[in-house]
């Protein structure tokens, strides 16, 4: 419900162009900013990117002044939407995926993708470090070739690993058992 409300709010902010409406919509983020701690470095980084976007729009818009105004309105919207999501949705983490009405197959895919990221991260990192040590001064084409070969070996490793994981899931009663486990109900 919280996610749905946050998405509706973000949609309303996205389609607002009147400054008065945007001012009214800024009340909720201000309250949230007062009540919760936000990662300030992230907000600063976000606004550095916003500043670049404002400059780009000002220079590319048919009219400089209009482009500047448009860029500032967008930057304002981005800040409102980020604060709302950061306060209401991001703390839920993966819980947000479970609470949304999504097909079971997709939920399983998301869970296994997260698991895969942690499984494969170390092997990808070590392969890249090894490649860097073996060819520290390689030219661009050689670096791209090495990267492609590392990617290929990680893909094959992940495909092989997936076969073992599929067998493990089947032994535990298939995906039905997999999801029951997640809910804390014993699969067998």
């Amino acid at each position: 419900m919280m996610i749905f409300c946050a998405l509706c709010y973000a949609f309303a902010v996205s389609v607002s162009s009147s400054l008065y409406v945007l001012l009214a919509e800024s009340i909720l983020p201000v309250i949230l900013l007062c009540r919760k701690k936000f990662p300030l470095p992230y907000i600063l980084k976000l606004n550095v990117i916003n500043a670049l976007m404002v400059i780009t729009l000002a220079l590319t818009w048919p009219d400089l002044r209009e482009g500047l105004m448009m860029g500032m309105v967008i930057a304002w919207r981005v800040n409102i939407i980020y604060v709302v999501f950061a306060a209401l949705v991001f703390p839920l983490g993966l819980g947000a995926v479970y609470s949304l009405a999504m097909p079971e197959k997709f939920r399983v895919l998301v869970i296994l993708t997260v698991r895969g990221i942690f499984i494969l991260r170390d092997s990808l990192d070590s392969a890249l470090v090894s490649a860097k040590l073996r060819a520290p001064d390689a030219g661009l084409m050689m670096r791209l070739k090495i990267f492609a070969y590392v990617l290929g070996s990680v893909l094959i490793r992940s495909a092989n690993r997936s076969e073992r994981m599929t067998q493990a899931v089947e032994l535990r009663g298939g995906f039905k058992g997999f999801m029951q486990d997640r809910k804390g109900e014993a699969a067998c």
């Binding site: 494969l120 992940s158 599929t166």
Partner: peptide, 23 residues
């Protein structure tokens, strides 16, 4: 359904590889 695990692991491999910066 039998290929879901493979799809997920390949998706995570692509996700990780796309985070690597090439100089």
């Amino acid at each position: 359904p039998a290929k879901i695990v493979r799809t997920a692991l390949l998706a995570s491999a692509f996700f990780l590889a796309s985070l690597v910066h090439v100089k």
